[in-house]
Each structure stands twice: as structure tokens, then as C-alpha cells.
Amino acid sequence: MSVILKTEKLRVEYASRESRSGTKVALNGLDLEVRAGEVFGYLGPNGAGKTTTMNVLLGFVHATGGEARLFGVDVREPIARQRIGYLPELTYYYKFLTAEELLRFYARIFGIPRGEADRRIDSLLKLVELEHARSRPIKTYSKGMQQRVGLAQALINNPDLLILDEPTSGLDPLGRMKVREIIQRLKSEGKTVFFSSHELGEAESVCDRVAIICQGELKAVGKVSDLVAQYQCDLEKLFLKLIGYQPQGVS
């Protein structure tokens, strides 16, 4: 299986006034490999560096050291982003546009011909169940609806790799279930999904493999079943253990 997402010794430092060195290390020598066709769960506590990793992959943040590649292309090349779909952590879109206009705009950026774009927009709006609201400005949407617009725009170019930053946050149980279904469907279509989450149950149910990071460092990576077997406890205990949480607590 080919590797389509790869980071090597990835290091990111943010300028920060708090620490004495003036920088804050958000990622520290991160090595990741995501293979074609798998659903990869990216787990970690708040502030672990999940979003930062994705920002590097998408070129928003430039790595201080190491490198990151998508489809074998350095992430600094815009062409690396031709075949990916991205759902940001917090979804905000041009509020004055309608969902349909927004999708059409993104379709245009991917150079999708008009007829094809119309077809895709129809099917995507149906997929995320926003057909009834397609010609309303996005500012009138609820949070869950906005999240689903985000999902639709991430799929507009029929991407081979999906990078989803907490795709289920802010959704009700039904919505989460739908997202899981979508992820599974994408997998069955042969797509690769790289998503971050705090929901361990969710990860357990949909992921082929997971990675757990904490404070910018990779703690564990592998199949959920392998990890559970290796550490002899369930995923939640494992997670807490890896991030250094002691139930007894030393105060």
C-alpha cells in the first residue's frame, strides 16, 4: 500500500511570550505515515498539536524543521492540495453566500466544469441533508448545519485524501452517526481519511489505525486491536496512560 501522507521529524515552533526561549514547541519530531485507503484516527488531548499538524499539511503554518509530504509532493506546493478535502476545526464560511454559491465557488477553484459542478453540488447537498436550505445565506444556519456545509465543501473535488479536524464536534448523536456513516462510505469508495478526534469510541469504531500524540510527540501508533493487545487495557485507559494521567493523582 502506498503512503500518501508522510511527515518526517516534523517540528513546529510558535512565537510565544510565555516561555523564556520565546518560542513554544507545538510539534516535536513527529513521524507519521498514512497509507492509501485507510481511515486514520489522530487522537490527543487538547493542545496536543493535532490542529497544528493539519495546518502544516495544508500550508497554513510553515514547519520549523523536518518535512511533510502529500502524495509525495512537498506541502508547500499548492498542487499538493489538488486531491485533498479539508474540514477545518471551527467552520466559518462566507456568511453572505448561500450553501449553493459557496460550493459553486469552491468547485470553480478546482476547475470543475459547470455541468459536473451542478451535479456534484446536488448530490453533496443531499448527502449532508441541506437541500432545503441551499439558497439561504449561511449566516442563517445552525452550528450543525454549518458543520455539514463544511463537510460538503471538503468533498466537492471528490478528493482522494480527506483531512478532517474534529468532524463530529458540535453535532448531535444523530449527526455524529451520519458523519461516521459518511466516513465509512468514503472508505468503501477507496478514499483515505485522516481525522482528529477526542471521541475514543468513535475512533475505535471507524478507524483502521490510530495515532496518539501528546505535547507534540507521538506516543503510540497502530491498529486499535494491536494497541489494546499490546498494553492490555481498553483504549480509554491506554489514552489516559499515554498522556501521563495518573488516576491516584500526585498533587
Binding site: G59, F60, R81, I84, L87, P88, G150, N157
Partner: peptide, 14 residues
């Protein structure tokens, strides 16, 4: 501020 730049620049836009 509205973070609309993120989905946009995540597309192949320089």
C-alpha cells in the same frame, strides 16, 4: 478572523 481563509487556502490556491 472568520477563518474563511482556511478552507480557501486548503484548495490549490497560491
Amino acid at each position: 478572523e472568520n477563518r474563511t481563509i482556511f478552507p480557501l487556502l486548503a484548495k490549490p490556491v497560491t
